[in-house]
Design a binder for these strands. Structure first.
Lengths: 152, 152
DNA sequence: CCGCGCTACGCATAAATATACAATGCGTTT
DNA sequence: AAACGCATTGTATATTTATGCGTAGCGCGG
């Protein structure tokens, strides 16, 4: 249940400003997720969110955590999603991955490198990656898998 | 005296992490600047600092996203569509907006800024914006709405 | 089945941050 | 000069966020 909540938090955050944890709590409740402020405080810490003028905001991607070690292997998709991915949404046979600004291209590249069989193709803009699957079932599948990578 | 203090704050912040306003107060005192936490709260607001894991940090460039205070308004989607949009077509859960050459990126940006709830995501090429909706109904909806913006 | 270690969570409360209010100082206007 | 507007700050307090502690559920080796 926690993962689902963390995702909902990202989603709420990227669609409307949130000024306080209590406001977040109310917004989540409207989505059927009911928790206390204490839990949100912990979630926020875990998601490494920032609070600034205008409320909470998603980590600006670049916060160097997974990849500052000496390594030549091209970064894995999981790492990429972990550091750039903000949210994953699915509609019909498509999956849309929202990333930090400028993060879409590298994510898509990592994606292509892995060559998932249930993916027909992908396109990247500036902060959005679009993934096309053969059908809805597969899209749901892919979305789920990607979502687990969000909460590294 | 205030300007000097604001500068000192920036300085302290960029040289060592600061976890709380009270810590900031102590660090400033070592530099001969003595104020209360209340004043710092106001300063921090004015400097638009963010607090995240690892303490306060300077505004990262201008990641103005959730900044809804009161800015010079970025161009609205309606204006954008009005000036760049050429045609709007819809298929299944997708909407394709044709724009003048080079107009797609700005239109998509404006689009994202408005954050329509019935839009899963959007990607822009050179003269085409692809919009993904959750389902066909929503796509028709969006298409209609956009079309009214075309003939401004 | 029991006990153990672990994670997620709520409750109560401590700690941190924001703010209502009043005081002070400094130009400007009358 | 008196009156006023405005900016800056401290004090006291309200609001918001973090956390210590206790409970519940869960997988696991005995």
């Amino acid at each position: 249940m926690k993962d689902q909540r963390l995702n909902a938090i990202r989603d709420v955050l990227s669609s409307s400003p949130v000024a306080s944890q209590d406001e977040l709590r109310r917004k989540l409740r409207r989505r059927g997720i009911e928790v206390t402020q204490a839990t949100l405080s912990r979630d926020i810490h875990e998601l490494r969110l920032m609070k600034g003028p205008g409320g909470y905001s998603l980590p600006n991607g670049n916060h160097s955590w997974p990849d500052d070690d000496e390594d030549d292997a091209p970064p894995s998709l999981a790492e990429m999603i972990g550091s750039f991915g903000l949210r994953v949404r699915q509609a019909m046979n498509q999956v849309v991955v929202g990333t930090a600004m400028g993060g879409a291209q590298p994510v898509a590249a990592a994606f292509d490198r892995e060559g998932w069989p249930e993916v027909v193709g992908s396109i990247a803009g500036d902060d959005t990656v679009l993934i096309i699957c053969p059908d809805t079932r597969r899209a749901v599948d892919v979305a789920t898998r990607l979502r687990t990578m969000l909460n590294v």
